[in-house]
Design a protein around this nucleic acid. Structure first.
Lengths: 207, 207, 207, 207
DNA sequence: AATGAATGAGAGTTCATTCAT
DNA sequence: GATGAATGAACTCTCATTCAT
């Protein structure tokens, strides 16, 4: 492994022209596709370039390293997911917990389902990406989300230790959803999962 | 990757002399250590041999492939954990849910803590190990454990859909514990986690 | 040995730049040289690359495996030899057996002399190459050659069993020539050998 | 390859006790079997020892190197073959060429058939064994055989250049027989081959 | 800007051989 | 004398990365 010595995850140059943006997009899409369908080990830079239809030279003109590509992908997925969750959260503001909880759980399920590989596999798998994932990740956003959610309904919550409550709620939801998406699931469907998770969260928070 | 064509995870030969057993042990310990401290990608066979203080040739005399070493490790950890959980389960048999739940949660926490890497990272991560992990894994054992636990206290459980209930309970506990061990935890300690998780489980099962 | 699972002897990519063609040529020449001078066992990919003056990476960019290099060599030699023999055969068409036989024998001697190793050692030797050799080999071509030759002079031939006659003629010539080239020869020269072989063939066919 | 630097093909110690002789025999038989059935590449010393049912340590107590084992095998086969041929030659002494030729050809065919691998593959294949084979080989014996055969029937032979005649006769017979045994043969049987070869030899020698 | 040829450290693995028991 | 544990050079092959064109 000849990883760049100074870790630089930033794309090398901001692609401003149409052609360049298209190249960058092709690379990211190809990577996404390979990661999802063929796994991390198959995702060599040469193969990514091939699938993206660009030369390996071009690839390295826009990304300083393989990790930069994957990081870019993670970041993109994270930002999109965060956006979705923020919106859902806003539109849930006025609702009672019984209604907002399932909606938030469902939203989390959706965002993770769309980018299963990025959220599920990568961060756990390749230690390096944990850092990336931590800094700007859904986890962080989710945390904020749950926190405000929790603050909003403080009266209904029977638990004193807020920090722990947030942590448990968060991991409880994510843990189950990830396992569900990870094919460890029995024959339950999305809605059943949302129902049960919502109940678990509500009952837990009730104390 | 030049993986052996026929996937054989069985150790190559049973060490007959004490010296050989020591070699096997060194290899397993070195692997464990590297996986824990430096990650899967660093765990090359040559490096394992070096850390174990044996030659690469010796390593391959006892393990037919790199994966066999890791599998061996997983299997060992799984069997140990299963034993612990089984014992705890037996000694909880007569107790009311309020007492047995925290004890089981604590036991799960302990077993996973001892082999964090093996349970946490590997099986989810490297798809190949999923199979190994599935066959005789803690997950399986845990499943059985929870199932019997659940059957035993059927009257106290307010949820009809047993299968889903088991799945959710299981993943809820594991998900939180793994996240906790995965350094995602805020500043909470073991006991606080056990308390909260127990409460989450009990409240959830109450329906 | 981590031979590619699907046996693919096809070169990996067509070299498009002049530089690349030079690389491919260097590799083939180096292989030829090593096989001739030092034998098959010495022909490791690293050594081939070293002698060719290219990196091992370059070698694998054009050939998917060690065997592909050797196959390439065999194929090339075979095609060249077939061409030579075909031409000689055509220009012998009208001649009487007494004149054409020595010319064909001489042509066979020449083609085999030029690629002694490829024809002599490899195909018989390493079972894998037998297949390659059989498909489009001199042996096959020679067979056809002898067959038409034989048909042409049917009236002069005293042997009924044509199939056996062809086989014997063919192996008789090849066997002697290969042994001659194989340094098993006493102090006889090319022309003496051609004379004797021609006589052997003619007398044999006369029945 | 860690071939012993000083080539020593002599067995390490002359086994005089029954047990030791049995060990040596087992090793030779195992090697023979592996070479015939699985090819030279599979014939590692460890595997030979395993198949022979002795420890690798014992193997090296009787043979200084892998090559010594194979050489031993070659030598054994060669001596046996030589013996057979010598006997056949003696019993042919008084016969006319028309009778003795087919008998000698048949004898050669038989001896080579019995040890196809040793005679056919090894010497051509692994350059090292060419030397071994040359020094004490059937080829040599065959040479002597043909020579005396030739001397005996000098009056019937129309060729002046005895040396060349011997060489051609010898290689003609061996070349065809080896090709026949090498599965390159069409659908002819042993007797047909013997007939044709005898005719080829007789006609050739008649000049 | 883009191409793709070239690089070489390092991966997993084998096997002839040695030597402590 | 026999065993088999241990060795390590050498093998085939991959892939992140560079650089001449």
């Amino acid at each position: 492994m000849k990883a760049a010595e100074q870790q630089n995850y930033e794309p090398r140059k901001a692609p401003k022209q149409g052609r360049a943006m298209h190249t960058v997009d092709s690379i990211l899409q190809a990577t996404q596709k390979i990661l999802s369908n063929e796994g991390y080990e198959r995702a060599s830079t040469n193969y990514i370039a091939e699938v993206a239809g660009v030369s390996i030279g071009s690839l390295y003109q826009y990304f300083p390293s393989k990790e930069a590509i994957v990081s870019s992908l993670v970041e993109k997925a994270v930002v999109e997911a965060a956006e979705t969750l923020r919106e859902e959260l806003l539109s849930c503001m006025g609702l009672p917990l019984e209604e907002s909880t399932p909606r938030m759980v469902r939203a989390i399920l959706e965002t993770r389902k769309e980018n299963a590989f990025v959220f599920l596999r990568l961060p756990r798998e390749i230690p390096r990406y944990r850092a990336v994932s931590k800094q700007l990740t859904t986890e962080k956003y989710l945390h904020t989300t749950i926190q405000s959610y929790y603050m909003q309904h403080r009266d209904r919550v029977g638990i004193e230790d807020m920090e722990t409550a947030i942590f448990v709620t968060e991991q409880l939801v994510i843990g189950c959803i990830d396992a569900y998406l990870d094919n460890n699931s029995p024959k339950i469907d999305d809605e059943t999962l949302v129902d049960h998770l919502s109940m678990a969260v509500l009952n837990y928070l009730a104390g």
